[in-house]
């Protein structure tokens, strides 16, 4: 299996604090990889570095065989890497439809954008119902769906989701994970950052546990679900 993403010995420092201290991970073509870890472990920093909004101090990031360390975020989006940020960050004063159009900003062909928006609407009919409503009027779960839908319009080959279940009711979390599963089935590779290890490991094929900026455990999802260290730290009981 070829890798869509390879991260090698990544170091990121904020001033004197090292948020990542030589982190390595890979995402294979069509894989759904979960990144688990506590608050402050470096999960968001990792995705931020991959999507070009956090400066990498040392180490390399390779996407689709090309070195993309410290590349511009818009170039990465054009290559097919999209990052759905923590807290959704939808545009609350743009309509649902405009939010989706922004998702297609890097795509030059309008008919492709419209086609993809149509696909998003059929996958997420709630958004279609609310297409001319302002993004800010949606519920938390709908906003998360919009954030994912917006990312899908860019036509990603690698979708990175940062804490998509954060602040959502359990039923909504399940729905979000269903959408992630649908996306995976379309052949998109997914990097899923979660504190909610239980639901993340249900969707993922493989997972990494990171702690203080380095990978501590790497294993297939079912193995992680059974790993006593993971059970104790992230799954409870």
């Amino acid at each position: 299996m070829s890798n869509v993403l390879e991260v090698r010995d990544l170091v990121v420092s904020y001033g004197k604090v090292e948020a990542l201290r030589g982190l390595s991970l890979t995402v294979g073509d069509g894989e759904t990889v979960s990144l688990l870890g506590n608050n402050g472990a470096g999960k968001s920093t990792t995705v931020g570095a991959i999507s070009g909004v956090v400066r990498v101090t040392s180490g390399t990031i390779t996407a689709f065989g090309k070195d993309v360390t410290n590349a511009k975020p818009w170039d990465l989006v054009e290559m097919g890497i999209i990052h759905v940020p923590e807290g959704r960050r939808i545009f609350s004063r743009l309509t649902v439809h405009e939010n989706l159009q922004i998702g297609g900003y890097a795509v030059s062909d309008t008919s492709v954008i419209n086609q993809r928006i149509k696909q998003v609407y059929s996958l997420l009919p709630r958004l279609a119902e609310r297409r001319s409503q302002q993004g800010g009027t949606l519920s938390g779960g709908e906003q998360q769906m919009l954030a994912i839908g917006r990312a899908m319009v860019s036509g990603p080959k690698l979708l990175m989701l940062d804490e998509p279940s954060m602040g959502l009711a359990p039923l909504m979390v399940a729905q979000v994970m269903d959408v992630v599963r649908d996306i995976r089935e379309q052949g998109t590779s997914v990097l899923l950052i979660e504190q909610n290890a239980r639901s993340a490991l249900r969707v993922a094929t493989r997972g990494y546990v990171i702690d203080s900026g380095v990978v501590t455990i790497e294993a297939p999802a079912e193995q992680l679900r059974a790993d006593p260290r993971v059970v104790e730290a992230y799954l409870g009981k």
């Binding site: 999507s51 070009g52 909004v53 975020p73 818009w74 990465l76 989006v77 054009e78 999209i82 990052h83 759905v84 940020p85 960050r89 939808i90 545009f91 609350s92 004063r93 743009l94 405009e98 922004i102 998702g103 900003y105 890097a106 917006r150 860019s154």
Partner: peptide, 15 residues
Amino acid sequence: RAISQDPKACLLMGI
């Protein structure tokens, strides 16, 4: 209009 609301999210959207 999107940048006036959230420039960082715009970067992630490829703007």
